[in-house]
Amino acid sequence: MTALTARPPVATPTRRDRRAARTLASRILGYAVLIFFGLVFLYPFVIQLGNSFKTEPDAAANPLSPFADPVTTAGFERIFAGTNFPLWLGNSLLVTVLVTLGRVFFDSLAGYALARLRFRGRAGLFAAVIAVMAVPGVVLLIPKFLVLNQLGIYNSYAGLIVPLLADAAGVFIMKQFFESIPVSVEEAARIDGAGVFRTYWSVVLPMARPALITLTILSFQGSWNEFPHSLVSVQDPDLFTLPRGLADLVSGSLGKGTQYPLKLGAALLATIPVAVLFVVFQRYFVRGGNEGAEKG
């Protein structure tokens, strides 16, 4: 406050002009920086889109240009005719739908129990969930292979799907949410004679819509993009999911040439479902991003 008395805020016109000029300059600079980074973050996708419609020589000669000249869908035709892309797509859809359903159901069941039901061992279980969240996925590559191999479900849909049907982070998100809704409604239902499952299913779950949407989106995105698990759970090309097939495509089982239009097109098609989801449900993604931060 001493600064205030020492320097009265009555600005002379010249000073005000200077300040206005400075604000304008800093605003222009702000937009310039914003647009620069906007390009840095979005232009690679523009390049991807543009080049997937190019001929191979065109893509090699003008990789920066977003405009295909001539425009050709040859790359996309070859994706569907010359690769197993449709198969990968089908596998990915199957895995994603089942994993998402499983996670939403099992994670919310467990989350509800940990938040509301009083049973022996609850505190210990929750501590275990927290501990499990800290286990880094990449150190599980060999362990997962071992157990799938031992159980005889290596190289099968079961191996691809079952291990992903529940995740600790999802349980955590659901528990946090259930704790935030008032108990009174449930208690009323219980006093009216509804059992535990009935209360959960028809009273609590409908109230948990926002958390369920968040979990659905996180699960969908996570299992659609999942790569390392498919790497250690299957080796039969008929069981490849999209990321696995895409990785296989890139590491060169393809004929001659770099075939970038085809690869970029395939990668683009694999990105579209999550991109659409992102545009439609953005705020849930943002929430999920911050929840994910907590899992650490």
Partner: peptide, 20 residues
């Protein structure tokens, strides 16, 4: 725009960067 790359598939993005 800044957040979008984070939600896309790591494999698909790697393909794009191989090209870049």
């Amino acid at each position: 725009a800044f957040y979008f790359p984070s939600v896309t598939s790591s494999v698909a993005i790697s393909v794009v960067f191989l090209f870049l």
